[in-house]
Design a protein around this nucleic acid. Structure first.
Lengths: 348, 348
DNA sequence: TTGTAAGCGTTATCAG
DNA sequence: CTGATAACGCTTACAA
């Protein structure tokens, strides 16, 4: 047992000197020499199996194995122009929605032996643009998860490499969008059934395309059922934003409220509960995304869930397909949103 | 408004054909030509400013800008052997602990103009090893966040490139470890003060080094205060694991329980509450990590918090420092754990 | 300070 | 099927 009792040092050089990294990696030249063939033959044997004599291929494989050979991705990228890497930019790593998005993209990439490069824009369009440009030269394609960029900026990026935007439509740029109306329809129906006639919407960032779509869908669905909807002042898409909007919400005189996302919903729920408004008795709340934690608030949150992992996976797939020269985006399954009814909604 | 009503397609080729990506990127040769200098001069001007005539530097900058030049990272990596990339492998992207870890690493990397490559091992040592080997050639260093690998496997990785393991000690390999005892000491003290004499520990994966350390720390601290501690059968480090252990926990006859992590704690809490055991009256629960959500369970979770973001940032810093040729790891601040008292602990 | 030239590890083209 | 050989875009002694 290496336990050192209390008072560990934060950074441990560890027992025994930290190792050096001298032994430079084997190259196809080393293999060629060992196998008695030309380096170019090694290259072929390794990258396009089948197009080579079985027996020499064998020898090469063995040599490679014995030398513990690994291709040098940078070297491969130079002549091919392909890095076997795709980039993903999210606005806030700390937001649980991105679990599923990151996982979906990472899995799909890993499946096809691609590697996922992740960056965070921290809800700022400036850093998003910077980051995108920093990433672009080193990836084969880029996924923009919740872009706050202008359409033109995105189009420019898309001019350089395959770009897919998630849950946003940008002219001329491919996108994967889950159908909001399905879930919102169910939600409004649900509220109507509970007798609500005045509902509100707490929007997220102005630059958020989804926030707009969600607002529209709500307005549309409510209009169809003759329900009055009032739009509140925008709030930051975090728990804090929800908390801070509690006053606005109460002042709005609605009996049910949609928030832009679950984070806001949870923040609001907490604030309301803390200040004596009961949910759902005093106010019904519906969030969006069904994030981690939405099921264990008190009461648990009713929310419009979206297939985030599948959305991201689909985006990754689409990029990889395009890299493989396919024209038509591999139009994936229908991505639908869906209401998850829990405890935060009740009779008006 | 582009809204299409309901029935959106999942993958939209988008209005107007998806763009092509022909225009090949400008190189230093293009700049050289435009600026009337040699490419090598351009290279210097761009990579080591100062070592060049101010006026030619100026010309080169302008040419670069006008051509919208971006360095080709692969091309740069080839002669230098440096990719300006660091890898991070986590066991489960979906576990909120990793928010902070990912963010800490990503921010520190981005600060120094490095890029973070992320991969998930899904709690499997096989895929972890595979992933590590897949990543290694394309990164300058690797951070293993919660490795399930054997020490020897990690040491082999560390022989090739700078590797830092988080919250684990491996001989000869650098690591960043938060001091568990501090927080556990506070926690046991807290329980003792509440009159608990029999506490339990629900461990995580067998291969998890932290799980072992946490168990030891608990045992040690309890021994000092003459508190009896019983070790339960291990459970998976997820909410599900906590849920499934509810029976074991109740059977153990303890009045307070530490779980390996907050995920388990939350799962257990939910299960217990659902089946009629009240927390903390029937059982006090303490988790580890203070993840997202720990503050809004009912009751909110008492937990031992660790500075995850700082831990990861420190790891990244250490790798970057080593890449810059510094010998001594930049021994960061003391990383201490700390008890956060909330509602899941009460009198015995 | 700047130019020359070699080299980084692969792939790709072209003969043989 | 395999071997030369020229890229790929950038860095880096070494010279000038």
């Amino acid at each position: 047992m290496t336990s050192t009792g209390s008072g560990d040092d934060a950074v441990a050089p560890a027992a025994g000197a930290t190792r050096a990294h001298p032994r430079k990696a084997a190259t196809i030249y080393d293999i060629a020499q060992l196998a008695g063939v030309d380096p170019s033959t090694v290259s072929r044997a390794l990258s396009k199996p089948g197009r080579i004599n079985a027996i020499t291929a064998q020898k090469i494989q063995e040599a490679a194995r014995s030398l513990n050979y690994r291709v040098n991705p940078a070297a491969r990228a130079l002549p091919t122009g392909r890095t076997r890497t795709i980039g993903l930019i999210v606005s806030d790593i700390t937001n649980p929605v991105f679990f599923d998005i990151v996982r979906g993209a990472e899995q799909e990439a890993a499946n096809q032996n691609y590697t996922l490069v992740l960056a965070e824009s921290r809800e700022s369009n400036d850093t998003e643009l910077l980051t995108a440009h920093r990433l672009l030269p080193s990836v084969d394609g880029l996924i923009l998860a919740t872009s706050r960029l202008d359409s033109e900026q995105i189009q420019e990026l898309a001019d350089e490499k395959p770009v897919v935007v998630l849950n946003r439509v940008v002219d001329g740029v491919e996108s994967v969008v889950a159908d909001v109306d399905a879930g919102v329809g169910q939600a409004v129906e649900h509220l109507a059934g509970l007798g609500h006639r005045r509902v509100g919407y707490l929007p997220g960032p102005e630059r958020s395309w989804v926030s707009g779509r969600r607002g529209e869908a709500i307005a549309r669905q409510c209009a169809q059922r003759d329900i009055e909807v009032t739009m509140l002042p925008a709030a930051r898409p975090m728990m804090e934003g929800g908390r801070q909007s509690a006053g606005d919400v109460l002042a709005a005189g609605v009996t049910a409220l949609f928030t832009y996302n679950d984070l806001q919903a949870i923040g609001l729920l907490l604030e309301l509960t803390a200040t004596g408004t009961r949910v759902p008795d005093g106010l019904s709340i519906i969030g969006f995304d069904d994030i981690f934690g939405a099921d264990f608030t008190t009461p648990p949150l009713t929310t419009v869930a979206a297939p985030h992992a599948e959305t991201a996976a689909s985006a990754a797939r689409s990029i990889l397909a395009r890299l493989d020269g396919e024209e038509r985006p591999a139009s994936g399954a229908h991505l639908r949103t869906e209401l998850v009814v829990r405890g935060s909604t009740g009779p008006a």
